[in-house]
């Protein structure tokens, strides 16, 4: 059954995986404000992702959530046809990829439909889903107009 985008989901409803570590909620907090932030080490300047408690380069515990451009290169991609979570089963197939961010970190993200062949320049941003926040890669053109909610986003975002 296809339901309008803005109506509440019918129950029982499967939710996306909601487990996140305490430290990773920093990404969600920024996404709630429409920002894409990653941890930056105050001592050595290293940018890191996934989030963790200390700097991956110098082990400093002083890390600041800092706005990032999200630009990077999509270096590998897959189209997922099987999921272990009921939430995703109605939403397959979906595209995932590994993005080498220009800041040096790797990000596994959803890939928006407008991203073409590999290797591709992309912009990564984060947004809230039903259970936390997730990251998605866009081509440069679509990234600028992302507030128009591209069609592909509807299946995953609130």
């Amino acid at each position: 059954m296809k339901r309008p985008f803005n109506t509440l989901p019918q129950f029982p409803v499967a939710l996306p995986p909601s487990g996140r570590s305490r430290i990773a909620l920093g990404l969600t907090a920024a996404a709630a404000l429409g920002r894409f932030e990653l941890q930056v080490c105050r001592d050595c300047g290293a940018v890191q992702y996934p989030p963790r408690e200390s700097c991956h380069r110098c082990l400093s515990p002083t890390l600041d959530w800092t706005a990032q451009s999200g630009s990077g290169e999509l270096i590998s991609e897959t189209t997922l046809f099987h999921s272990n979570e009921p939430f995703f089963r109605r939403r397959l197939p979906c595209r995932l990829g590994l993005v080498r961010l220009d800041c040096g970190a790797n990000a596994v993200t959803f890939i928006n439909d407008d991203v073409n062949s590999l290797p591709a320049r992309v912009r990564v941003s984060s947004y809230l889903d039903w259970a936390g926040s997730v990251m998605r890669s866009w081509s440069g053109r679509d990234y600028r107009s992302r507030r128009t909610r591209p069609k592909a986003l509807r299946s995953f975002a609130v």
Binding site: I75, S76, T78, N84, M135
Partner: peptide, 30 residues
């Protein structure tokens, strides 16, 4: 799969929950 490691729970599993199939798909594709 959902609790394999902190990194996978935070930064891999929420992306379609493909588990190691998805991770190895990225390596294989590359």
């Amino acid at each position: 799969l959902g609790n394999f490691s902190q990194f996978s729970r935070d930064a891999v599993y929420p992306y379609g929950a493909g588990g190691p199939n998805a991770s190895f798909a990225l390596l294989t594709s590359y």
